[in-house]
Amino acid sequence: MTSVQVTDLVKDYTIRSGLKRTRLRAVDHVSLELTPGRTVALVGESGSGKSTIAKILTRMERPTSGTVDVRFDDGTPVPDAAYRREVQMVFQDPFASLNPFHSIEHHIARPLRIHKRTGTKEETHRSVLDMLERVNLTPADNIAPRRPHELSGGQRQRVAIARALAPGARVLIADEPVSMLDVSIRLGVLNLLGRLQREDRLAVLYITHDLATARHFSDEIVVLYRGRVVERGPSDAVILDPHHDYTKLLALAAPDPERPGRVASDAGPVDRDAIDDGVCYDHFTGRWREAGVPAAAEERT
């Protein structure tokens, strides 16, 4: 079992236009904790910094400042060499995340070999089939030799999940894993993730823009706005009793068939500039605090 403690993550990008250089802060002092068996949903719009956090957690980007502390259950830190084994990712687009040139077997066998989870060729082949069966791709021996374009979107995403779990990962970053899939398949893939999480006691970071699935598939919701955490808490509390203006706006914007004809009666467009991104409501402590400041600078009303 492995847990992740993210503290005061900051990521700046430099934008060059002509001679001018501007700094864009994509992630501003974000802290969160992933523990085994729990799912944390990271909710926000495009450009809110969700994917940057995913990239930092999977070590595809270096943070400008802040720490990502990954530890085994006994408290010892995960060494660099084992980092890629412990922390894995499921990408958003199943049509882009599998190499069109290689077979399904290659995609799952490679992580197995890299992390020395198998020895002989036959052993690898058997492990690949086992992985495919775990993600409900049966008959596995029929699926394994195929290439990605022969599978449907849902099947590809299952392959991607199998690949992520193949090294024996304990921490899973799922970056919008179902947003590119057909609606009737989405719950199936999410349920699969949920089942695997329970079986392996994974720590999952579920990145999404969809409040409804965030509520149903996570224990905790962290709302991100302009790179800052503006609200966090148990998922039901955040969705049913939102405190921050932005969360309220998101909750209102999500379609809800329980309330038909609501569109017309909505208030007009909200002035984005009126939303205060400088404060954050924490449902765990029941208090407001400043957003975009180090976590150590404790709650101020």
């Binding site: 999977t58 070590r59 595809m60 890629r84 084994r85 894995q88 990712m89 990408f91 882009a96 995340s97 599998l98 190499n99 490679r110 992580p111 890299i114 992390h115 991607a160 690949r163 992520a164 193949a166 090294p167």
Partner: peptide, 9 residues
């Protein structure tokens, strides 16, 4: 898929 290969080590 290149990113995925890098992430898997």
């Amino acid at each position: 898929y290149v990113a995925a290969a890098q992430v898997s080590g």
